[in-house]
Design a protein around this nucleic acid. Structure first.
Lengths: 246, 246
DNA sequence: CGACTTCTTGAACCGAGTCAAGAAGGGTGG
DNA sequence: CCACCCTTCTTGACTCGGTTCAAGAAGTCG
């Protein structure tokens, strides 16, 4: 773990900088958070061990981070995936029970106490607070999607669903995905996300490739036939309607 | 749907009435909420359709209610289960995207605007507010547990895990489970909770019975060998450590 | 250029799904 | 109170999606 004194990532500004109705103070807060020092983790590094409490929201600046749980026999399930621009511990003071937060790739993470919504004397309000609440709801929606995937979809649908969701999430963080996007993890990690064996992940990806739905090589994915991929996935992007009084 | 003018359920008082540090005002609020009129739903009834927004928290007074999602081919996955004493829409103004809220058994539900935590001018504070936040975190923890179950556990473990979790949840709502507890749903519903086929749910329950882990008859479950059941389940009760500044 | 990790492929196996049909409940009306 | 119907449960036989095991190929890094 090593601290890097740079503030060039801009993930929060890229995510929320263009929100309509953002005040100057809120814009400043985003810049402030984006300028925070970043802690670097290497793949496999523990950001928070099982049972730890996350008191300060952590902004993912780069890389993939996850919440994972180990079972007997060395089985592992990745419960939630954090991508650059995502925030760990939005709900403030969350205990993680038996789950650990682990870096899946080299990752940069910036602690941002300012983003704590549940905090008693709340520094967040207005448009930005609403955005953070929506982000938390979206995250919960992705948990639901994961349950659908694991509970009622077969391997082919599962992978399709995951890829579509991934593309959607990256895009909503301001990333250009028209020429594909990076999939910077091993098939073993994908297996632990998708609840399948490594071998079958491999075979399913090949099937999707042979069917002409995607192009996959060198850690990158490109969607070739979005219509059919979306049909196989039955993916519906999370629609978070905001409460009128929020 | 029919409104019943009775306030004898006391689910909230039973759940939180004994919280240490509860003020008289908070105790009054609980009684007030418990005295609310209850809306009765029959099995299969829709409490909120897919895409609807839940603006007012709904307290489950009796029966089982769930968040479910339908897929093509008539497949269904139950994403979350609400038991008596649980509250729907704690996060305030949640859109449900493609999921619907449905009654699984005859159910009584009471709308309680007072319990809205995220609401802008917050009526909730202090001990009770903290309790509601913890409840929301616990609910999220159950989502995580569901992901573990569906992603990395085989049928036998899945059923064991579900039963232990259920017993734990009922107990934490002040229900006496020493002589077993009710399982008021069909095996088809269990299948949609557990992500398996009806036939296999049936066979797995029988296996658990033959192994002497549980006793199951007439819609009731009794845990006979908690040690072995817990071992099979790898269940760990949600430990929600509260943030010190909350 | 090794040495290690990751990917790929084949073959055998098995957990769980599907299909089908009969048994057991549970409610309703005669 | 019984007969009937419909839902739910149970069981057997077959099928299949996915895992496991194993070994070779392709990357990747020092």
């Amino acid at each position: 773990m090593q601290i890097q004194p740079r503030g060039m990532h801009q993930v929060l500004t890229r995510r929320w900088g263009n929100l309509p109705g953002l005040s100057q103070g809120e814009r400043d807060l985003l810049s402030l958070a984006d300028a925070k020092h970043t802690v670097a983790y290497s793949p496999g590094a523990l950001l928070a061990s099982a049972g730890a409490v996350i008191r300060t929201p952590l902004v993912i600046v780069s890389g993939w981070v996850c919440i994972q749980r180990m079972l007997a026999n060395g089985r592992r399930q990745i419960v939630f995936l954090f991508l650059p621009g995502d925030i760990i511990g939005l709900d403030g003071g969350t205990s993680l029970a038996p789950e650990a937060v682990v870096a899946l790739t080299p990752a940069g993470v910036a602690p941002c106490p300012e983003l704590n919504v549940i905090h008693d004397r709340q520094p967040l309000f207005g448009t930005l607070r609403q955005a953070v609440s929506v982000a938390a709801l979206e995250d919960r929606q992705y948990l639901h999607d994961t349950i659908i995937r694991l509970g009622r979809q077969v391997a082919y649908e599962r992978v399709a669903h995951f890829l579509i969701e991934l593309e959607h999430r990256l895009q909503s963080r301001g990333m250009d995905v028209t020429y594909g996007f990076a999939l910077p993890v091993t098939q073993e990690i994908l297996a632990d996300i998708l609840g399948m064996s490594v071998v079958h992940v491999n075979r399913t990806f090949q099937q999707l490739r042979r069917d002409g739905l995607i192009e996959a090589r060198a850690g990158r994915i490109r969607v070739l036939d979005r219509t059919r991929l979306q049909a196989a996935a039955e993916f519906r992007p999370p629609v978070v309607a905001t409460s009128p009084h929020a």
